[in-house]
C-alpha cells in the first residue's frame, strides 16, 4: 500500500509528537490534537506536547500484512495511558519477552520506521513505544 506523500507530510507533526488537547473550559485532556474539546464542545483549547512516557493498559498481537512493513510482523498493538492522563493506541516494540507485557508496564515513546513504499521510495517515520529504559524514581 503506497502512502500519499503529501498527506503524510502535512500530518508529520502528529507522527513525530504526541500532541494533547487540553480544554480550558472543562479542564479535560484528550488525544489527538483537536480544535474542539470532545467532552464539552468548547473551542477554548490549547495543544500541549506529551513528554512521551506512560504505562501499558493492555495489548493485542496482529499478524495482518501491510505492504512496506511485512518484515516487522507480528506487531504488538497496545493502549498506553500517558502520564498526562490520556490514552493512546500505539505499536509496542523491543519487547524482550511477551510475558513482560503486563498492565502497568512503564513505556516511553521512540521514533521508529512505520513503513517504506519500496526499496526506492519514501520511508515513513513516527512514534512507537518501548518498555522504558529509565524507570520512574
Amino acid at each position: 500500500m503506497k502512502h500519499s506523500i503529501s498527506i503524510f507530510w502535512r500530518d508529520r507533526e502528529n507522527h513525530y509528537k504526541l500532541l494533547i488537547t487540553k480544554c480550558r473550559n472543562c479542564g479535560k485532556s484528550s488525544y489527538p490534537k483537536l480544535k474542539r474539546c470532545p467532552y464539552c464542545g468548547s473551542t477554548n483549547v490549547e495543544v500541549v506536547e506529551s513528554k512521551g512516557r506512560g504505562t501499558l493498559v493492555n495489548y493485542t498481537i496482529t499478524y495482518f500484512r501491510v505492504d512496506g512493513s511485512e518484515a516487522m510482523l507480528p506487531k504488538v498493538i497496545g493502549l498506553v495511558k500517558l502520564d498526562e492522563g490520556v490514552k493512546v493506541p500505539a505499536e509496542i516494540v523491543d519487547v524482550p519477552d511477551l510475558s513482560s507485557l503486563k498492565p502497568g508496564l512503564e513505556v516511553e515513546a521512540v521514533l521508529r520506521k512505520y513503513s517504506s513504499d519500496d526499496p526506492h521510495g519514501l520511508i515513513y517515520y513516527g512514534l512507537k513505544f518501548i518498555p522504558s529504559i529509565i524507570k520512574k524514581q
Binding site: 512493513s69 518484515a71 516487522m72 516494540v93 523491543d94 521512540v110 521514533l111 521508529r112 520506521k113 512505520y114 520511508i123 517515520y125 512507537k128
Partner: peptide, 13 residues
Amino acid sequence: ASVDEDAITMGWY
C-alpha cells in the same frame, strides 16, 4: 538494530 531502526531513529533517541 531492529528492523524498524536506522541511523535516523537511533540518532533521534
